[in-house]
Write a protein that binds this DNA or RNA. Structure first.
Lengths: 210, 210
DNA sequence: ATAAGTAGTGAACCACGATTCATTTCTTCA
DNA sequence: TGAAGAAATGAATCGTGGTTCACTACTTAT
């Protein structure tokens, strides 16, 4: 035997894989998954098309990985918001705001994660993604019920409803046509939209108008 | 001139068109839009593939029409529920229940309308469909505010949130994998799921726990 | 009956992008 | 240095299904 995989090679491969992942993310962020053709990703990453397939079994696998990564980022942010101090009610409010504002700040990526038509494997990841959110909310709601800051309710169901209410409210503003029409310089923070979504959600949870 | 379109011919064409529409609906109801290949529809309707194109410019147009028809049926049902007697609160509750229960009764069709990946033209119709629901709810909410049965709120935003909360809650149960796993004989009415969705929604609207 | 025109046909065509694989280039180690 | 194997290449291939269009069958009016 004359060749054995060495550290150098492992590094080089890992590096190439990383470049492929990054380029895919970039293209998705720019124009959604449909903008991330295998040939385009390869070119961007400076490798041949075939090379993609030395790192991923298929385009769907690659996309699923990108989806997981982007998703994890978002879920982490919400987890973080739910981990701040205060009672469950204020923490949930922070989390909902985090969710909505981050989406509006990176609308194309958010649209891809929430609403872009995708292949089955990726759709599976999307369902997991949404369930992950719903479960995070569910936990916080249960804490709220335990500490008495939230009335008795079906925590799982309420969590799902929160995800749906926000996602639905964002689908319009996030859709490519809307994004394209938006002035890129405009301030997307403290969007009045976000406040009224949150009003509905918090009332759904607490029963208290604010 | 020797040939002029006559009543008989117009009838025959209308009839063929209707058969095409019906077959498409049937196939969509059975397995979603991806189950309605042009060739399959043609065969089912007893015409040649090419004939489809004498009635519709493209598959997308055909699908968009099917989508519109199915959608109109649903919207009509909700409109009907909102038109019954009682104050806005009870009428909204009836409407939400109608929405959810009909979806659970025809899960594949509901999934196609709500969540199946579709082509852009059809996606456009879907956005209209969702907006139509949101607007119906919005109107009822405004009536509720006027008559004092609902507190002041952003009616449009609340309407959108209602649509999202229900749709999201249904996506899981409606997804093909779930539907396939469900016992076809089981009773989908008075689903406990529906009650807890409605609890959340009604509280979001009224602020009153029931 | 026949001319003029429309409806219907379906096999061939095409667009599109994912995937493959024979070939080339590079890496390792004796 | 060179033999053995791995990695990289990218043009060619393939699969899928929508769409076309030259042709046939039918309808109408004279």
């Amino acid at each position: 035997m004359a060749y054995r995989e060495t550290e150098k090679m492992r590094n080089r491969k890992a590096h190439a894989r990383k470049r492929i992942v990054e380029c895919t993310q970039q293209r998705v962020a720019e124009g959604g998954f449909r903008n991330a053709r295998v040939t385009a990703v390869a070119e961007c990453a400076g490798v041949a098309t075939g090379t993609i397939y030395r790192h991923f079994d298929s385009k769907e696998e690659l996309f699923a990985e990108i989806f997981r990564i982007a998703t994890q980022r978002e879920v982490d942010k919400v987890t973080e918001a739910l981990g701040t101090e205060g009672n469950a009610v204020v923490r949930l409010e922070r989390a909902l705001r985090q969710f909505a504002e981050r989406a509006l700040r990176a609308p194309t990526m958010a649209w891809s994660l929430i609403a872009e038509p995708v292949d089955p494997k990726v759709e599976e990841e999307r369902l997991k993604f949404r369930r992950a959110y719903a479960e995070l909310f569910e936990q916080a709601i249960e804490q709220g019920m335990a500490e008495g800051s939230l009335p008795t309710q079906q925590a799982a169901q309420s969590g799902t409803c929160l995800v749906g209410a926000i996602a639905e409210s964002l689908v319009g503003p996030l859709s490519p046509s809307m994004v394209e029409a938006a002035n890129p310089g405009e301030n997307n923070d403290s969007h009045p939209l976000v406040d009224s979504i949150i009003d509905f959600c918090m009332q759904g949870l607490t029963g208290n108008r604010r």
